[in-house]
Structures are given as structure tokens and as C-alpha cells.
Simulated assay, not measured.
Amino acid sequence: MVGSKKNGLLLRYIVAIVLLIIMVFPYLYMVLNSFAAWDQVDKRVIPTEFSLRSYQWLFGGGDVAIPRPWIQAFFNSVIVSAGSTVLMMVTGVMVAYALAKMNFKGRETVNNLILFQMFFPAIILLVPTFLIVQNVGLYDTYWAMIIPKAMSLWAVFMYTNFFRAIPDTFIEAAKLDGASNLQIMFKVVLPMSKSITAVIFLFLFMERWTELLWDMLVVRSDQMLTLNVLLSQMFGPYGGYPGPMYAASVLLTLPIIILFLFFAKKFQEGMQFTLK
């Protein structure tokens, strides 16, 4: 009986390890090939010679007929993703606090409309949003990539559910001390929501960081390209440079990995709440 349990546990470990290897190997392959000598890129499963040539090629802007701003594109992605995520977090907190802790006429209607809107495919609003951006003169600017992504209904939904679980006694005590709703929201409620904030932040940042279609529509000049858009253009004139393509892909994943490692503990706590 004991032996069968040990065999079953060993089998589960083996299956888990195999699945982990299958999941992680594509990323390891990408990292290894980004550092591989150019004559070994995609030639071996595990390269035997390594160099920084692919990264030097990127940092130098490339050596094709029209050098592309890889580093500028990376910082464009940082600016756009950080700006959009901060705005989505702020608007999410404010709307969710009103829905969860404030009584006003039509609150349930607003909440139901938000839930209803979450089922709409985002592509439905793509054309009208693009026309608005173009008509107000924001085309080919950072604002064209940031403002239309300034609110996340998913963030509102997550924050609303979490705020409802916070006892009203904390809110009432703060009001007795003379705190306004804005002060209560950012000095009482939000500090108590660090775990769910970590989950929301990571998901929103990752979603915005990997955005491609919208950024392709509202950006024209090379200096405004995000890294995702620039990567999508590599398969044309840059198709003969797989090493730098892998290197740019590694750069694209780096911020997400760093943020996840930094917020890992709070992320786990927040996920435990969402799974309850």
C-alpha cells in the first residue's frame, strides 16, 4: 500500500517535471539563441558557441539599409505600458470604490452595464476609437496609445469584489476622523488591498505590454514604434537576422519577468483571494 502511494507520487513528480520542461524549453531556446554565435542560431538545440553580437546589433540600430530604433522602441513600450497601467489602476480603484462603498442612485445599473460590457469583443470598438483619436489630433503620439487604454473593466470588477469584502467599520471610522472619500480610498482601502493590487497590476501591465494591433494602427513614425510593432516588422527585411530577433524577444519578456519576481509574494496572496 505504501509502495503504491510512493509510486503514484513519483509518477506525478515525473509528469510535472516533463510538463515544466515542455513549457519552459521554448523560452530557454529563445534565450540561448539570442546569445548564440550567428552561425549556430537555429542550427543546434543547444548552441556550443556564444557571443553578444545579437545584442550589439540591436543596440547599434542594425546594419541593414534602414537602421531601426530598437532601444527607442523598448523605451516607447515602457512609457506606453507604464502610463496606461497607472491610469487603468487609478480609474479602476475610483470606480470600484464608488460601486462597492458608496450609495448612489443607479449603482446596480452601472455595475450591470460594466459586466455586460466585459462580454463585448474589444475589436468592435476598434474603428470608432481610431477615428476619434485621428479626429482629435492624437494620431502618432504617446497619448494615442495611452488614453484609449486608460480604463479596464476587468480591473473595476476585481477591485469591486475585493472592496466589498472590506468591513464598513474601517470606512465609518475614517469618516468620523474627518477623512474624505478620496482620502479613505487611497489611505485606508488601497493599502489594505496590496495583494489584489499586485495581481491586477501584473495582468494589466502584461496585457498592455503585449498589445500589438492597436499600436500598429495609431503609430506611423519609426521613433514612436513600440517593441511589439517593431518585432512584427522583423519578418520582412529583418527575416535574415534571427539572432537579433531572439534578442529583441528576450528584451520584450524581461520587464514582465522582473515585475513578477518583485511582486511574487503579493501575487500569490492575491490569486488565493481570486480563487476563493
Rank of each mutant, 00 (worst) to 15 (best):
L131V: 13
M158L: 15
T109L: 15
R44F: 13
F157G: 13
R12F: 14
S34K: 08
I257R: 00
N135I: 05
G243V: 00
P148F: 01
L126Q: 13
M89C: 04
Y238K: 14
K105C: 07
P47T: 04
V218K: 08
F50E: 10
A173H: 06
R208W: 12
Q40P: 03
G61Q: 08
A73G: 11
K265T: 05
P26S: 01
L87E: 11
S77F: 03
L275H: 09
M206F: 13
F163P: 14
L87F: 12
T48L: 02
T129Y: 07
K6S: 14
R107C: 07
P67K: 07
T48W: 04
F116Y: 14
V229M: 01
W214P: 01
E207L: 02
V229N: 02
W154V: 11
G3R: 15
V90R: 04
I79A: 15
T226R: 05
M192R: 12
M151F: 11
N181S: 09
F235W: 14
I124Q: 00
T129S: 09
V64I: 15
K6F: 10
Q223W: 09
V219G: 06
L217A: 11
T160W: 02
L176Y: 12
M94R: 06
A165W: 00
L227T: 12
G137Q: 12
